[in-house]
Nucleic acid binder design. Structure first.
Lengths: 167, 167
DNA sequence: ACGTTTTTGCAACACCGTTGCAACTACGGC
DNA sequence: GCCGTAGTTGCAACGGTGTTGCAAAAACGT
């Protein structure tokens, strides 16, 4: 058997074994892909990419594996979509991310000011803010420049027309 | 015809008329409900509540109306769910909200510190942060106290067991 | 190599939201 | 008040997404 080619795949394999899981050819392919992805991908996209790379795997298996990895805390789900991305650190619990609404690329960051602001919100509202549930959406520098960087993501309301001659 | 009983319904009716829409009995019932809801509700829940109140309306119509209202900017969609809530002001464009992960109640707030933090993030990442896409999730004071305040909302990963005798 | 346990693929299913179409209804004009 | 036009509704059918039952296949410890 081959060795994991990236840091995430290695870490994930260890975690899987520790929890009694097994390392199959398809699972490894998925881990490699997840570890090398440059943007959050959903199960469907992961599956398509795996097929494109020559792996023979069923969509259901991708779903099951992604769920398992989420449960193990190895993946992070982009808020408001089915896309996932690997958690940077083994115990990543407080990262924030900003996702480009145009190209979908995610960038993680750490902001002292944001931490402070969250404390303020916590105090003001009495809420206990839960970890890693904060996510921003915006346009990344690249996509701000070029309009070329397109991609449909519209989870927004179906924009039913009003007053249009809707037959 | 009756007069709208709450501020939101009134505002929504005006906006709908302005855009060439018409005010039907069912639409009005939905607006009344939306204007009086204490927590974000999804189309399904809205529909159920409308039936419970004696209105006879099809689920499809609820979907269409909610979409229309979203398109008009009268409703705001909770990130990561299908639930909606009325925008407080007619032109609300920069409110932030914190949603309780237990009971679903939403509370809007305004935070100077958060504004400042967002500026910092903007500078640091080069992203243009888009409006009203930031949303926090946490436990509200009530739900922190009592465990009684329950409600299923789990859009989280199906938590497929690993190494369990999955049979 | 063998037996046990997990993983996989397939098919079927459940759920959510959307769309085509015919019937209905609001509303402006007379 | 009645009419005609144009927006709205309900129904049924559809498409997409994610889940589950089950038998075959594969991984891993011995």
């Amino acid at each position: 058997m081959e060795e994991p080619s990236n840091e995430f795949a290695l870490r994930a394999e260890q975690a899987l074994r520790r929890s009694g899981g097994r390392i199959t050819r398809r699972r490894r392919a998925l881990l490699e892909l997840l570890g090398s992805q440059r943007t959050p991908l959903g199960p469907r996209q992961l599956h398509r990419e795996l097929l494109r790379r020559g792996a023979r795997i069923d969509l259901v298996s991708v779903y099951r594996n992604v769920s398992a990895l989420l449960a193990l805390g190895l993946l992070h789900r982009v808020v408001g979509s089915s896309a996932v991305r690997p958690c940077r650190e083994a115990r990543a619990r407080c990262h924030h991310a900003i996702v480009c609404s145009a190209c979908g690329r995610a960038r993680e960051f750490h902001s002292r000011a944001l931490e402070r602001a969250l404390s303020e919100v916590r105090r003001a509202t009495g809420f206990r803010v839960e970890e890693h549930v904060l996510e921003l959406r915006g346009r990344c520098p690249r996509c701000r420049r070029s309009r070329l960087c397109r991609r449909r993501q519209s989870r927004s309301g179906g924009a039913r027309s009003i007053g249009g001659s809707g037959r």
